[in-house]
Simulated scan of single mutants.
Amino acid sequence: MEQVSDFSRLSKLTEGDYEAFLYDCDGTLADNMPLHAESYVEVARGYNFNLDPAIINELAGWPIVQVVEEINIRYQLAMDPQEFRVKKAQVFKERFLEQVMPITYVTEHLKANAGKVRIGVVSGGDRAGVQRTLEVIGVSDFVEVLVCAGETPKGKPFADPFLRAAELLGVDPKKCLVFEDGIPGVKAAEAAGMHWVRIDEFKFG
């Protein structure tokens, strides 16, 4: 019943004169943030570092390379960000990817609005992993544009990924509504001049 109630709340919150809906993937469409955190912890362990998974939630939406750079700064480490990214992607793909479940009220919202507005997904994850995640949770056929880590000069919390998605869709950024679960994504949406919905708290901005 809660999923049905949440779908109704989300639908009511997103009424308006929008031409495109831009969804984050991890933690917004896909219920996979604990799995991503676990893969970060496993790879960090290979560098003899016990990573607190709370930092992964704090930096939700950041590209992996930037997350590792931030961890290096905070803990005076020297982990290779690109090497870490490759290892983390491999661990997630091999151990966790096929277990990912949808956040149903958000995926149903996406499907209900496909054809009414343009649909894009903007993620801080690697393209191959995000594409497969969208397939696993059953929404890949509804997504017109996908913007992922490394495909814009800067990632979230900067505006670049959302502005790129709007450009690819041919939609004015002011006519885009962003769906996010993390603060970096909300900041990126605001920087792009877009309204946003924080799906886990049903906040609108």
Rank of each mutant, 00 (worst) to 15 (best):
E2M: 12
Q3Y: 04
L10P: 06
L10D: 09
L10F: 08
T14F: 04
T14I: 07
E15I: 09
G16Q: 08
D17S: 14
D17I: 00
Y18G: 05
F21V: 05
Y23P: 03
D24M: 07
G27A: 10
T28Q: 07
L29W: 11
D31I: 02
L35M: 14
L35F: 11
H36D: 02
A37K: 09
E38Y: 00
Y40V: 04
V41Y: 02
V41M: 10
E42A: 13
A44C: 12
A44F: 12
A44M: 13
R45D: 13
F49E: 03
N50W: 00
P53R: 11
I55M: 10
I55N: 04
I56F: 01
I56S: 01
I56H: 04
I56C: 08
N57K: 13
E58C: 03
L59V: 08
A60S: 12
G61F: 04
P63N: 09
I64K: 10
E69G: 02
I71F: 01
I73F: 09
R74W: 09
A78D: 15
A78V: 04
A78N: 15
P81H: 07
Q82E: 14
F84N: 01
F84M: 08
A89I: 00
F92E: 00
E94R: 13
R95S: 06
F96Y: 15
E98T: 09
Q99A: 07
Q99E: 14
M101C: 03
I103R: 05
T104V: 14
E108Y: 01
H109D: 00
N113I: 04
K116I: 11
R118M: 03
I119W: 01
G120R: 04
G120T: 10
R127V: 05
G129R: 02
R132Q: 13
T133K: 02
T133Y: 01
E135W: 01
V136P: 03
I137L: 03
G138S: 06
G138I: 06
S140H: 11
S140P: 00
S140W: 02
E144L: 08
V145F: 05
V147C: 06
V147G: 07
C148I: 08
G150D: 02
E151R: 12
T152S: 09
T152A: 05
P153A: 06
K154V: 00
G155T: 06
P157T: 10
F162H: 13
F162D: 07
A166P: 07
E167T: 12
L168Q: 14
L168E: 15
G170W: 07
V171I: 15
D172S: 14
K175P: 06
F179T: 05
D181V: 11
I183L: 15
P184T: 10
G185Q: 12
G185C: 11
V186A: 13
V186T: 10
K187P: 01
A188G: 15
A189F: 06
A189E: 03
H195L: 11
W196E: 08
V197A: 10
R198E: 12
R198Y: 07
E201Q: 15
G205E: 12
